[in-house]
Design a protein around this nucleic acid. Structure first.
Length: 592
DNA sequence: GCCGTTTTCGGCCCGACTGTTTTCAGTCG
């Protein structure tokens, strides 16, 4: 069984917690946390690196000790130091620490003094008041822990971005309605970094009457519980179970506040570390020259980063990895934006499982300023989605060709063709040849063994007619796990065959995910940002796909559907695999 | 445990809020 980077990252996260409970140096704890963060965001598989006998110490944040532990785990499936820690410390401490407001100290006391090992036992201890016997825990803390525990049962800890973003905008609208003194409101935190799931919603406010705003915030109708109400911040839980934090900032110092609360925490640690080496200290109010104690404030983030000798770092890249080094390079490079997209190559209509007519979908794409669109209804095999039979698709070709006369936007005729369990496609070759665009996707037999699934996807990519592989891992965030496959081999094969890979913008999919898209970009694999729209509102979801591309570090030239119509037409007209040369020359031209 | 424009040793981001308190530890981000 393959060992994933996430498994290893989770062990180091646990080790950090255990070391913290044990009372080890906070710096040692932080070293393990940092290593876990790095590993979680690493594109290459550690298992592959170890099998190739690579020196992991080349990776920033991994030194000799952690290098050796990774080797030990991949070679023996154990880390003895980790197992010793687990034996040394009372059973259940890690479980207890998963409850908000139970940190290492509390977890240790509860486990040792009360013998609590599970969340069920914790609840029992709360209900019969034994928790109150722990030093430092009073009525209020006990209540908050109890609520957190109940909350954990009904809800995953993190909320998909597609749910969180509309909620954040709704809260901002409500605040602007009920409070006249607001100067501006800003989304920060993981939401601004466009993480695929969100821990809590962070909002920063500039307001003429902060005290009143914080009070009004806690009194919004959607607020179900007030966690914190201070002079500078307030935290509440809203009815959907999400925590929302509101922070107050001054206009003149807004840049530092937004920077700080956008995070990530690891990014801020790296940034402050970097600043410190220059004799500067960064906090959420500004930058202080350590030698003089004089603080400068910044109205916007760009000024703050520039003061440190860095380019502006887009929030999507603030992962606590190598972005600070990246920003020292003086050459500006703009990440891709929504406005760069000139076409959408994966769109459904009411001919299959879409809700809007072909005309409406084309009109909407045209209104967005696109130069081209591909209509790609499902193939026959997908019965549940009213996939088109061979005959219906042939009718469809005639139908769409007629429509072209009514629109100036170029309409490509395509299909989202099922990749069958054996890797063959769901339409005969002669019909596929008639299509301009083929998005090949897996919709069935998702539980196949990794080797079988990898071969299945590779077979599809080797088909001359396949333009794009759609939502490659088929995951639904929080609901359906990704298929098992050898991502590196698939990316190599995509490059070799001249097959583009989709970043599916649907917020429940976001597939490819950011780290795979980043690896694809690094390997020179052509990427496409599609919405997979099933109605006209679906096009608006492109912002989520663009966010994934940005998190992957994509510039315009890494994404095929930013090509002009002429160039794109020559791209798809060119037979595979020679087509890749057109993509490469596009990438080079844009880079210059 | 990691790391080096001050360093192979001695540093390591920084602040808000709360509870149970009388000056601060714990937790969070």
């Amino acid at each position: 069984m393959a060992i994933s980077n996430l498994q290893i990252a989770n062990i180091f996260t646990d080790m950090a917690a255990l070391l913290e409970i044990k009372g080890e140096s906070v710096f040692k704890v932080r070293a393990y946390q940092r290593a876990a963060n790095t590993i979680e965001n690493l594109e290459d598989s550690l298992e592959g690196l170890v099998r190739a006998k690579s020196d992991l110490k080349q990776i920033s944040g991994i030194g000799k000790a952690i290098n050796d532990k990774i080797y030990e785990y991949i070679e023996t499936a154990h880390i003895s130091a980790y197992e010793r820690l687990l034996e040394e410390l009372p059973e259940g401490v890690l479980t207890l620490m998963t409850v908000p407001y139970i940190g290492p100290k509390t977890a240790y006391l509860v486990a040792t003094q009360l013998g609590v090992k599970s969340l069920e036992e914790l609840e029992a201890a709360i209900l019969d008041n034994r928790l109150l016997t722990i030093d430092g825990i009073g009525d209020r803390t006990c209540q908050i822990i109890h609520r957190s525990l109940l909350e954990m049962r009904v809800k995953d800890q993190r909320t998909p971005i597609g749910e969180a973003l509309p909620i954040a905008h709704s809260i901002i609208d409500q605040l602007e309605t009920v409070c006249d003194d607001i100067v501006s409101l800003h989304i920060a935190g993981s939401l601004r970094r466009w993480e695929e799931t969100i821990g809590d919603i962070d909002i920063i406010a500039v307001c003429r009457d902060p005290k009143n705003l914080l009070k009004v915030f806690t009194e919004l109708e959607c607020v179900s519980e007030i966690l914190v109400l201070g002079d500078k911040k307030s935290s509440v839980i809203i009815d959907s179970g999400i925590q929302v934090d509101l922070r107050i900032a001054d206009t003149a110092a807004l840049g530092a506040m937004v920077q700080y609360f956008t995070g990530s925490q690891q990014h801020n640690i790296r940034l402050r570390d970097y600043a410190k080496a220059k004799g500067l200290s960064v906090n959420e109010y500004g930058i202080t020259e350590v030698s003089t104690g004089i603080q400068e404030t910044f109205a916007d983030e760009t000024a703050l980063y520039n003061r440190l000798g860095l380019r502006y770092i887009p929030p999507e890249l603030r992962l606590g990895l190598d972005e600070v080094e990246w920003a020292q390079d003086p050459i500006e490079c703009e990440l891709i934006t929504e406005a760069d997209l000139l076409g959408d190559l994966h769109v459904h209509t009411d001919w299959s499982d879409g809700n809007d007519s072909t005309e409406v979908m084309i009109e909407t794409a045209s209104d967005l300023g696109y130069e081209y669109i591909a209509i790609t209804d499902h193939s026959a095999g997908l019965g549940v989605a009213s996939g088109l039979s061979v005959d219906r698709l042939r009718d469809r070709l005639l139908d769409i060709r007629k429509l072209q006369d009514k629109f100036s936007i170029k309409i490509f005729i395509g299909s989202e063709v099922d990749i069958r369990a054996d890797g063959t496609l769901d339409y005969p070759d002669d019909l596929l040849d008639e299509l301009d665009i083929v998005v090949a996707s897996v919709h069935s037999a998702m539980g196949q063994h990794s080797d079988v699934m990898t071969q299945r996807l590779i077979s599809a990519m080797n088909h001359q007619a396949v333009t794009i592989v759609g939502h490659l891992t088929t995951r639904i965030i929080g609901q359906r796990p990704p298929v098992q496959c050898d991502m590196e081999r698939i990316l190599e094969e995509a490059k070799r065959t001249g097959t583009a890979l989709e970043i599916n913008s649907s917020p429940e999919r976001l597939d490819l995910k950011d780290i795979h898209a980043r690896l694809a970009r690094q390997m020179g694999v052509p990427l496409v940002v599609n919405t997979d729209s099933h109605d006209k509102l679906g096009f608006l979801q492109r912002k989520y796909g663009i966010a994934v591309a940005r998190r992957a570090g994509c510039l315009t030239n890494h994404v095929v559907n930013t090509m002009s119509l002429d160039r794109f037409t020559s791209y798809i007209s060119c037979p595979k695999p020679d087509r890749d040369a057109i993509f490469v020359s596009y990438a080079m031209a844009r880079n210059n």
